[in-house]
Design a binder for these strands. Structure first.
Lengths: 191, 191
DNA sequence: AACTTTGTTGAACATTTATTCAAACTAACC
DNA sequence: GGTTAGTTTGAATAAATGTTCAACAAAGTT
């Protein structure tokens, strides 16, 4: 083997950040070259096309995102308690000035039927995410209920991922979540 | 006044459809010219720029969308009953082969902080939508509760707008909604 | 009927886009 | 140490992008 190849993970991290912030169409390959410090030939040799790079970025993002969720749920005192913490984290994250939702959600909405492969890939990865929630929830609930709860959880996370842009005061949304996700063991609070 | 101006509403309808299907970045001005049958000069004379056309499209879409929601809620036997019907309609619409979510939701996620004006406009229009729900709900609930319910409703609608791409079987999602939006007067069903 | 006003036309423009490829380079292998 | 195979280079390419503008045409005004 000749000259060692560039570090794929570092390049993917930079690409994920770029696609995440800008979206697939608005992110240009020039920006990819600038962000990764790599030249066109290297990127195209390694990923084939913009779409190829995007596919790997999606996979990379999903892997990190699912690992983060799993870690948070497993370190909590219970899975459902962990979900409360996770939802609170998502709401807090949405208050950041550079908040940009979730790469999968953004991409699902951006890429229409003219990109069937990408759409399928995104759908698959969102499904994997939901399946992981169902699996973790099944430690506490029976299998059928876990699936319904996982599905409801996804719906609420999607909602938060969009509503995040709208929010000024998080307390009202938290109140809403306590009402609609009433099967979760929310902490009692006095306000 | 010289030669009569083209019909602005027709042009906006076509533009809305295009931006809705493709998104702001993927929709090209060439596609606008093709869809409207107008020449570059006419469009630029009337709307100034792609961003100008997009802004008016957003306003146009919001107007139609809010009117549709209001009509559905007012023709129902009660506002909350109308909301059930509206949610069911949204879920059904998401099963269409050419489903493309909601223009406001898509745009909110696509246009990042590099388009601050557009972002603000979208946020405003989503807020108007939420305010209308709160106003209509206040016919049935007190003012504070109406606001919380409206906010929760928005969250669920956003969720449906994203989850719509994921859905195969709508019955599970409907079940979820019945659980989380338990304050709505859902029809009893045997399945 | 001449003039002004104003929307329309469509070719042309400068940028930017994703992508290519022959040449240069480097590390491993014989 | 020469050969080879795979990686990087970066200028170049063709196509597409949003936008402009001088010429044109039709209605209102005098």
């Amino acid at each position: 083997m000749p000259r060692p190849q560039f570090d794929r993970n570092i390049a993917l991290n930079k690409s994920v950040d770029l696609f995440w912030q800008q979206g697939f169409h608005a992110a240009s390959m020039q920006q990819v070259f600038a962000a990764t410090g790599l030249k066109p030939g290297s990127i195209y040799h390694a990923f084939g096309s913009k779409e190829g790079l995007f596919k790997e970025s999606i996979e990379h993002y999903t892997k990190l995102s699912m690992a983060k969720a799993r870690a948070q749920l497993e370190q909590a005192t219970s899975i459902s308690k962990g979900i409360c913490e996770l939802l609170e984290r998502l709401i807090n994250e949405s208050q950041n000035r550079d908040y940009c939702s979730c790469l999968l959600v953004k991409s699902q909405l951006e890429l229409n039927i003219e990109h069937p492969e990408l759409n399928q890939l995104i759908t698959q990865n969102l499904q994997k995410t939901e399946d992981q929630y169902a699996e973790l929830l099944s430690q506490e609930f029976d299998s059928d209920l876990s699936k319904i709860y996982a599905s409801s959880l996804m719906l609420h996370i999607f909602g938060i991922r969009v509503y995040g842009y709208q929010l000024k005061d998080t307390s009202q949304l938290l109140k809403s979540l306590r009402i609609s996700l009433h099967w979760l063991p929310w902490e009692n609070s006095l306000n």
